[in-house]
Simulated assay, not measured.
Amino acid sequence: EDGQGVVVDHSAGGGGPLKVVGERRVTPAGAGRPEVAGRVQEIQVVGRTTRIASPAYVYLPPEYFQAAHRARTFPAAVVLTGYPGTASALVDKLRYPRTAHDLAGAGRMRPMILVMLRPTVAPPRDTECVDVPGGPQTESFFAKDLPEAVSSHYRVNKGRGSWGVVGNSTGGYCALKLAMHHPEVFGAGAGLSAYYDAPTDPTTGDLFQGDAETENRASLWWCLENLPAPDTSLLVSSSKSGETNYRDTVKFIDLVKEREPTRISSIILESGGHNFNTWRREIPATLEWLSGRIGGRS
């Protein structure tokens, strides 16, 4: 990473939970005004309850700036990288904003706000989107603080399940877990090349501190077997050749199919891998799927 640090004032009157610190175009240099091309804004978010601070990028579709839609609200989705990841890769390498712009322009998805960041909000630690006992409350940041902060600043749809969440690798695990644990917030969650249980290794440290409930909730397998089935939609992806999560993904699909009202969809490639090229092949279909499953008022 080579992004410059930005000072965020945490004191009273420091400007609220979200601050816009930069802006960039969606399309190549010289192309289009915001009402034609949309915009990507760089922001700093400070969680109201967790006090977690994180940079992020927000994609605003062209309609957001058009006079005819001044009073319109939009569905929104959190987009997560893997670990450790860089948020800028979601913009430049995985091309989420450009893909969303092109799909909406072709009528294949609704215009949507994308909030793009990495799940590593307590760097360098990999918290696996867990509310660590006595440590970073990462799940609460993504499920409560982040949607609240973004909704206070941007015109986001209201109502149950009006947000979506998507990610790759670690971000994919987080996306599935957030949708399963918080269906009142996330109407859909998509895990690209996801895994289904939080690892414990030198990058994570002790995530659970002996708390059995926290450890159980971090396992999507345990959640499927022991918690009420959430009213949300899930999407998983894998490749028959080239990815290690294929068998687990098939097993996960079979388990979810037995647990209404949870809905499950999948993208299974014949050949792929745990890399940007594979995810770029899956992102257009994922965004279309997400657009059709996020509720709320627009």
Rank of each mutant, 00 (worst) to 15 (best):
I268R: 07
R263Q: 15
F252V: 03
T232S: 06
K257C: 13
G272C: 11
D254F: 09
S241F: 12
T232H: 04
L234T: 05
K257N: 14
S271I: 11
E270K: 08
I253F: 08
S238G: 04
S239T: 02
K257V: 13
S265K: 12
F252A: 02
Y246Q: 02
S266Q: 15
L255R: 14
T249R: 00
R263N: 14
T244I: 06
D231S: 10
S237F: 13
R263S: 15
S237L: 05
G242I: 04
A229K: 00
D254S: 14
I264R: 14
R247D: 04
T249H: 01
P261Q: 03
P230Y: 02
E260G: 15
P230V: 05
T232N: 05
I267C: 13
E260N: 12
E270V: 02
S239M: 03
I253C: 03
S266M: 13
S233Q: 08
S271N: 12
E270W: 08
Y246W: 09
R259M: 06
S271T: 13
L269K: 07
D254V: 07
R259A: 11
P230T: 05
E260Y: 09
S271P: 02
S241G: 03
S265R: 12
N245T: 05
D231Y: 01
I253M: 10
I268D: 08
T244Y: 07
S265H: 15
I264N: 13
L269I: 05
L269F: 14
L234C: 07
G272S: 06
K257T: 14
V250F: 09
F252K: 04
P230N: 00
F252H: 00
S271L: 13
L269P: 08
E243T: 10
T232F: 01
L235G: 07
T232L: 04
R247T: 01
S266K: 13
Y246S: 01
E243L: 03
V256K: 08
L235Q: 11
S237T: 10
V256S: 12
L227A: 05
T244C: 01
L234M: 09
T262D: 06
V236A: 14
P261C: 03
E258F: 06
D248W: 00
S271R: 15
P228I: 03
A229Y: 07
K251Q: 08
L234H: 07
I267P: 11
G242K: 04
S233V: 08
D254G: 07
S238W: 11
E258V: 09
S233M: 06
K257G: 08
D231A: 12
P230F: 04
A229L: 06
F252Q: 00
T244L: 04
K240G: 06
G242T: 01
S266A: 15
R259Y: 07
G272K: 09
T262G: 11
P228W: 07
S233F: 10
S266N: 14
T232Y: 02
E243Q: 03
T262R: 05
T249D: 03
V250A: 10
S241N: 09
I268V: 15
G272H: 11
G272F: 15
G242V: 00
S238E: 04
K257I: 12
I268C: 09
